[in-house]
Simulated assay, not measured.
Amino acid sequence: MMTSRTQGYIYVAITMCIWGGFTITARLNAIWHISAWDIAVLRFSLAFCILMPILIYKKDLNFLFKKEPFVLAMIGGVAYCLTSYSAFHYVPAAHAAIFLNGCIPLCTALAAYFIFKQAFDKHTWLSLSIMLSAISVMSLLMYEETGVAFGFGDLLFLISAIWWGIFTVLLKQWKLSAWHSMAGVAIWSAIVYVPIYLLFLPKHLDQASMPHLVMQTIFHGVFVVIVATLTYVEAIKRLGAFQAGSVVTLAPFIAAIVAVPLLGEPLSFAIICGLIGMGVGALQPWRWFGRKDSLQLALDQKNQLKNK
């Protein structure tokens, strides 16, 4: 019989495959002429069609009428998806590992500071120093190589990291279950975004082939939205938030390397420096055997004071 720790690493492996696949398939959207507007509506629509009947059957709809699922959906659903999917149309997959996944821990710490006044601990300061140094060196090398240090796609990835950082902090504070978090984000994203897409946004579905649309819809609507969310939460339960999160963070960096032969994307010395620096800063290997992160400790203390 498998131990809880072994189960945790199995869930981590599944999550890594899906998150790594997100980087590759999101980049393929640009190659297959599937716009960010289109993939977002396909993703939200399929997830809605799967989850809404389940919630109706379980008579579990009341949580949808609270503000928390709606706010999380607008930030971690609609806003995050549109900016991150759009970014892949401008820059290679390796840039996502650096400016999106690499910056998420930093943006999460900044969100905790501005929303809950949670000061940076020494680990965050060290991580921040490593990341800023890596971005500075990479930008300098890229400017020397191409004449451009920071592109529009990189800016979109950075904005996406900010959205996800805010989403993560709010998710920790509000303590919704994995099921309610995932279902609420998917359903409210569809309710808000699909009508806007149908009425106002440009549509390019006729420019992509049907097999490509079907593959992307199933992968992003089922595996990314539903499966990865549930496996990630199960991994956290068994391994802890920091260890599970650190291992899973490796997935986009691995995907960036895989994209070189698979998609024929360039991997310059500047990008290699950025990947290494941001990877170390995001993973924080010196904290591998540490306990809870400072934000979680602060939130726990805050909740304890409320209960007294």
Score class of each variant (00 low, 15 high):
209 S>W: 08
195 P>R: 14
76 G>Y: 04
228 A>G: 09
104 I>F: 12
156 L>T: 02
255 A>P: 00
256 A>Q: 05
230 L>Y: 12
141 L>E: 08
133 S>N: 08
39 I>W: 08
24 I>G: 01
201 L>G: 11
1 M>L: 14
72 L>G: 06
300 D>K: 09
168 T>R: 07
80 Y>H: 11
131 M>I: 10
171 L>Y: 12
218 I>V: 13
182 M>T: 02
224 V>S: 11
31 I>R: 03
123 H>N: 11
138 M>G: 00
34 I>Y: 02
118 Q>D: 07
114 F>N: 03
117 K>S: 11
176 L>S: 02
43 R>N: 11
88 F>R: 03
121 D>S: 04
306 K>W: 13
4 S>W: 07
210 M>K: 02
38 D>S: 01
7 Q>Y: 04
54 I>V: 15
108 T>Y: 12
22 F>K: 04
274 G>P: 05
39 I>Q: 13
288 W>L: 12
160 S>G: 06
263 L>V: 12
182 M>I: 02
164 W>V: 00
35 S>T: 05
281 G>N: 15
38 D>H: 06
15 T>S: 15
124 T>P: 03
181 S>A: 14
193 Y>E: 12
32 W>V: 00
268 S>K: 02
84 S>V: 09
82 L>W: 02
6 T>Q: 13
301 Q>G: 07
189 S>P: 01
134 A>C: 09
296 Q>R: 10
41 V>P: 01
38 D>M: 04
229 T>V: 07
109 A>N: 06
84 S>T: 14
134 A>D: 07
60 D>G: 06
290 G>Y: 06
305 L>I: 09
249 T>W: 04
23 T>D: 13
188 W>P: 00
195 P>S: 14
154 D>F: 04
104 I>N: 08
57 Y>N: 04
163 W>N: 14
200 F>G: 01
6 T>C: 15
180 H>M: 03
114 F>A: 07
263 L>Q: 02
46 L>P: 00
166 I>A: 13
149 A>L: 11
139 S>N: 01
136 S>Y: 13
189 S>K: 02
186 A>D: 00
9 Y>F: 13
133 S>E: 08
79 A>R: 07
259 A>F: 06
66 K>C: 05
301 Q>V: 02
141 L>G: 00
180 H>L: 13
250 L>K: 14
291 R>N: 05
203 K>Y: 13
148 V>F: 13
241 A>P: 01
173 Q>I: 03
69 P>I: 09
191 I>M: 06
188 W>N: 08
294 S>Q: 01
44 F>I: 08
93 A>R: 00
186 A>K: 00
68 E>D: 11
51 L>M: 15
307 N>H: 14
113 Y>E: 10
92 P>D: 09
261 P>N: 15
80 Y>K: 06
280 V>Q: 10
50 I>S: 11
155 L>G: 05
142 M>V: 12
56 I>Y: 13
40 A>P: 01
189 S>C: 04
43 R>Y: 05
171 L>I: 05
211 P>L: 12
76 G>K: 09
213 L>V: 00
246 S>A: 15
289 F>G: 08
112 A>R: 11
15 T>M: 10
181 S>H: 11
